[in-house]
Simulated assay, not measured.
Amino acid sequence: MNDLTEKEQLDELRAWWTENRWMVIGGIALGIAIIVGIRMRGSFETEAALSASSQYEALLEEVAAERSDPARTIADTLFNEYEDTVYADQARLAMARLYMDSGRDADAADVLRPLATARGDEPMQLVARLRLAKILLYQEKPEEVLELVKTPKDSAFAARYNEVLGDAHFALGNFEKAAESYNAVLADERGQQTVDLALVRMKLNDLPGGDDADTISLPAAAAMPEPADVEPSAEVEE
C-alpha cells in the first residue's frame, strides 16, 4: 500500500520543513516588507502632497500681495522638492502672471518654459504653452510661437491656439495662413466662448485683402457683449 502511516507523514513534514523553512520564512518576511513599504509610501506621498499644498497656498498669498522675492523663494521650493506634483505646475503659472504684472516678461517666459515645452498635452501644459506664446508675441518672436504652438487635440483649447497662430503668421507676413487660422477660430463653435469673436473678426478684416476674403459669418450671438477672457476648462488655480 502507498498509504503512509501517521508517523511517516509527520517525519516527511519535518524533513520538508527542515529543508524549506528559510525559504518560507523569507517569503513571509518579504510579503510583510512589501505591505509595510506600500503603507509607508502612501503615508509619505500624502504628507508630501499636504506640504506642497501648504507651500502653494503661501505662494498665492505672496503673489496676491505682489511680493516677488518671497514668492520666488517659495516657488523654488515647489520646483525643486515637489516637481512631480500639480502644485509645482500651478506655481509656474502663478509666478508667470506675477512677473508679467511687474513688467518682467523675460522672467515670465523663463518660468513658464519648462512646463510649456514638456512633452504631453495635459491641461496645464496647454495653458502654459498658450501663455508663453503670448509672451513671445509681445517680445516680437513670432517664429518661436510657430515652433511652440500646434493646434491641440483638446478642442477646448483649439480656438485660443488658432488665434495665437494667426497672430504669429500675421507678424511674419504670412497673411494667407493668418486668415486660415482666424477663420478656424470663427468656425469653432465649441471654442467661441473662449475668445473675443469681434476682435478675431477685426484681425481677419485687417489682413491685406481682408474685406474681400472668404470669411465665415459670425453667429448672431456675437452681437451680444463678449464674456471675459475665459480660460479653457482646466483645473488650474491662477
Rank of each mutant, 00 (worst) to 15 (best):
E45T: 08
E45A: 08
E47T: 04
A48T: 13
A48Q: 15
A48F: 07
A49Q: 14
S51E: 15
S51D: 13
S54A: 13
Q55A: 10
E57M: 09
E62Q: 15
V63T: 11
A64N: 12
E66D: 09
R72S: 14
R72V: 06
I74M: 07
T77L: 06
L78Y: 09
F79H: 06
E83Y: 09
E83T: 10
D84T: 10
T85A: 04
V86P: 00
R92K: 07
A94F: 04
A96L: 03
Y99L: 03
M100A: 04
D101H: 05
G103M: 09
A106R: 02
D110K: 11
D110I: 11
V111D: 02
L112R: 04
R113V: 01
L115S: 11
A118T: 09
A118G: 06
G120H: 04
L126G: 13
L126S: 05
R129Q: 14
L130T: 04
A133Y: 04
A133Q: 09
I135K: 07
L137M: 13
Q139H: 05
Q139F: 12
E143V: 09
E143A: 13
E143Y: 03
E144C: 02
E144H: 12
V145Q: 08
V145D: 06
L146K: 07
L146F: 12
L148N: 09
V149C: 11
T151P: 15
P152G: 06
A156V: 05
V164K: 01
L165D: 03
G166V: 05
G166Y: 06
D167I: 00
D167Q: 14
L172V: 04
L172M: 15
G173D: 08
